[in-house]
Design a protein around this nucleic acid. Structure first.
Lengths: 244, 244
DNA sequence: TCAAAAGTGTTATAGATACACCCATGG
DNA sequence: CCATGGGTGTATCTATAACACTTTTGA
């Protein structure tokens, strides 16, 4: 996905004279039940490379920056094209510009990371060349994408510890236990239900509905709603506004 | 500084067909005594634009990405060229890629932010087209550089509150009161000297020397040293290593 | 009526804050 | 010896963690 329209009409010496190519890639996180335990775990979609370099390996969805879109829009479009999903959260991760990320031509990748709601993620289309993988324990990926995913995971965990971000992985209504499960899945540690509940109650933007989740085996838990704009790209813990 | 070698040999229609230009800019912070109070305050160097667009206005130092350098190296070189200084801290800030940042051609700027030690900053060369300004209360700058500076300030303050970053603005040896002054200057609030001292003593990478700062009017304070690698670009509070 | 999750209350601990106090030096 | 900043001690407040306990439901 890195470089493609660029290379087609150029020979090697022309490539070397060209300025670095500019690409957008996206790390997309969603919650899916683990095959083994059934508990929610972090997954992300990857696309199989159908040409050199790294032909056959899995890579982050992405492509060259098209003239018409802002960086943010380009990332969102990307996500739409490969998975058919709209992000409930989208933020710039980092610009990777090492000299030898791609063997033939130099590529600078501006990488975004996104979260999609679990309900939608369940309907995401897969195919021979688009598959979902567990975020931890990935094999070798194309380019430096393995390190990029690790960095995105680091950022996700970081934001999770102090910030209201977990809700973007859930549906519109959710129980407090579900939020807790997200924390436990992402941070990979257990959280005391009693204290967790109190922390959330103090937090703004969490509104109790008068509905209860039925169908469980035990006492039906109350449903809550997140009131901090659902498609908010830059939450309060973030910059004034580098939307440019 | 945005776009320059790119545009020279191209007419307008060719420009529109070109992919977005890639530029590197740097927000450089240093401590200088305020003209009024004499207390240390935040300053940054700007360069005057000598051609359109925004001719005559002040802008961040920067330029197009040269093939030979990594993004980080390009930013460091930039800093060297315009101010003659070497950064004691350098980190990627954000990639700005709005469609209309530059009137003629589309420019994607990868912006870094840096800190230089106060002793060195005092020797920084100024000229007709390179001047230092107080970081707060800037006038209108070229392009979207004003917003970029504000964002860099936000990031600096954020890192300052939890992270060992203030030392990069000071010299090799410093008193604890000097560190406190940095905090007060950057965060713009007073800090209790007693508690601040204790917090620092718990922190790693702060080593007491057996020297004392002479020449003051009162009891000579002990000098300390920062032992966390002085040119460390990615401290512990940061990503695994997106150095690519 | 029992198991298990929902939800509440209570105490212990760690860290931050406020501030009273002593120490050392130049004038 | 006094003013002032360097440096220490200590009480208080607050957020968090740990965990015992009560409530509500399905089976």
């Amino acid at each position: 996905m890195e470089r493609q329209s660029f290379a087609s009409a150029a020979n090697v010496s022309e490539r070397l004279a060209q300025p670095p190519a500019l690409a957008i890639s996206t790390v997309i996180f969603a919650l899916r039940p683990s095959e083994s335990s059934g508990r929610p775990t972090l997954w992300l979609p990857l696309v199989r490379r159908i040409r050199e370099p790294f032909k056959g390996l899995w890579a982050l969805p992405g492509g060259p920056l098209t003239r018409a879109d802002s960086l943010q829009d380009a990332a969102a479009r990307n996500l739409q094209d490969t998975t058919g999903l709209a992000p409930s959260y989208l933020e710039q991760l980092y610009a990777f510009g090492g000299l030898h990320r791609s063997p033939s031509q130099r590529v600078v990748s501006i990488v975004y990371w996104a979260m999609v709601q679990s309900a939608e993620a369940a309907m995401a289309r897969e195919s021979e060349n688009v598959k979902w993988f567990r975020a931890d324990g990935l094999d070798a990926l194309a380019f430096d994408h393995r390190q990029i995913v690790d960095y995105a995971l680091w950022r996700l965990r970081n934001k999770m510890t102090y910030g209201s971000i977990a809700y973007h992985l859930l549906g519109e209504k959710f129980t407090l236990a579900q939020v807790r499960e997200v924390y436990e899945a992402v941070l990979d540690r257990t959280v005391d239900p009693a204290n967790f509940r109190r922390q959330l109650k103090q937090t703004a933007h969490i509104e109790a509905t008068d509905e209860y989740l039925q169908g469980g085996k035990h006492r039906p838990p109350r449903l809550y709603r997140y009131t901090g704009a659902t498609s908010e790209y830059f939450p309060a813990t973030n910059p004034p506004s580098p939307n440019a």
